[in-house]
Design a protein around this nucleic acid. Structure first.
Lengths: 198, 198
DNA sequence: CCCAAAAATGAACACACTGTTAACTTTTGT
DNA sequence: ACAAAAGTTAACAGTGTGTTCATTTTTGGG
């Protein structure tokens, strides 16, 4: 746990930030280990002391992102939770989500684009689905009365929400998280009035 | 237009099917041109007579897929079209879509997975969005009364639909297109009863 | 049937990136 | 000062890239 661990951590961080700097303008598949170590100004061999390869590097960055997002959501969920009405709770979850997405928007923008890695949107959706599922299961009557398979329902609902998020990020965060929440509620109400268009 | 064109077309097709055979078990990023030509039993140089590189190959396969899907939808849309009620039309569009998705499921399954190429789901959604947009614009009152930006609405709605499709494909097409349509309608009705869970 | 055009082959090429190794230097704590 | 950890340097064999060029095969028109 001494300073060695600290130095180690710092180098890893340096590699990560250098990598993120490069992926701003170059697709992941085109990035080489040499590109990264040149920007980080370290020896190429040093990279391999910390990561197996560039995929391992991205895996670790991705994992940390999901952890951060998850923790942020969990923490804020504590403030509301059980004593409140179900519907109101959902709305607050949405607002919470838009906020934490905004914090990680630069990274998400890249990872969701064609510069990222294949399948990211699936891993993102799965991580997100899990949070929604836990939340849904708090409402027992909903869970037991659901006529469609849970997996399909979750996939539909989370994909819709992520679609909104993707559009938001693609638009360069042109709205505040509160505006996004309002927009989200408005869309739901359009569907409820049966004017969905689908 | 002679037999040379035909021969050319056949070789391209051979390269494509060989590639699709390989990508069943190996991720796109790991596939080499040598892998492809070995399976196709042609010279590696021949590959470069037809494609710039493996990315060009995938681009062309992808483009053709979107073209096929689009044509299929357009054609079936003709049978219903304008004289019918708007809502009924939407339901038929959904049924049509589930059918054409099923036809291309093997390829879509791979391209949407982490064996495919980054950003595929975006290109897929955009192609799909376009069809939905055209369809929505037939209903003028909807279009003019829409309170949220069209892009956000489209993103929400098409992502939701594609989420359902992704789950379906992931489940190995465990339902018929008709069952999927029923399932889709049921989910919409859940949301309309305000039990959405989001 | 023969010939010119197109397509495919085979082998070689320089180049770039990979992941690993081994000897060495620097940084750091005790 | 010395031992341990981290990083450096340079070299390596291996693999894939995209291109070249001389050669062979396939094909249709005259």
């Amino acid at each position: 746990m001494s300073i060695y661990t600290e130095k180690n951590r710092k180098t890893k961080k340096l590699i990560q930030t250098s990598f993120m700097q490069i992926i701003e303008n170059k697709s992941f598949e085109a990035i080489t280990v040499g590109d990264i170590t040149k920007v980080a100004q370290i020896n190429r061999g040093t990279f391999y002391l910390h990561y197996k390869d560039k995929f391992d590097l991205l895996d670790q960055i991705e994992q940390q992102l999901f952890e951060d997002l998850g923790n942020h959501i969990d923490e804020l969920q504590k403030y509301y939770s059980s004593m409140q009405k179900f519907e109101k709770n959902q709305e607050q979850l949405a607002a919470t989500l838009f906020n934490s997405i905004k914090m990680h928007a630069p990274m998400l923008k890249i990872f969701l684009s064609d510069r990222g890695r294949a399948g990211f949107h699936l891993r993102f959706r799965d991580a997100f689905s899990e949070k929604v599922r836990v939340n849904l299961e708090k409402n027992e009557s909903f869970h037991t009365n659901l006529k469609v398979p849970m997996e399909y329902y979750l996939s539909f609902i989370t994909s819709a929400f992520l679609g909104l998020i993707e559009q938001w990020i693609q638009n360069g965060l042109d709205k505040t998280p509160d505006e996004m929440t309002a927009l989200y509620i408005e869309i739901i109400s359009i569907i409820q009035k049966n004017q969905s268009g689908l």
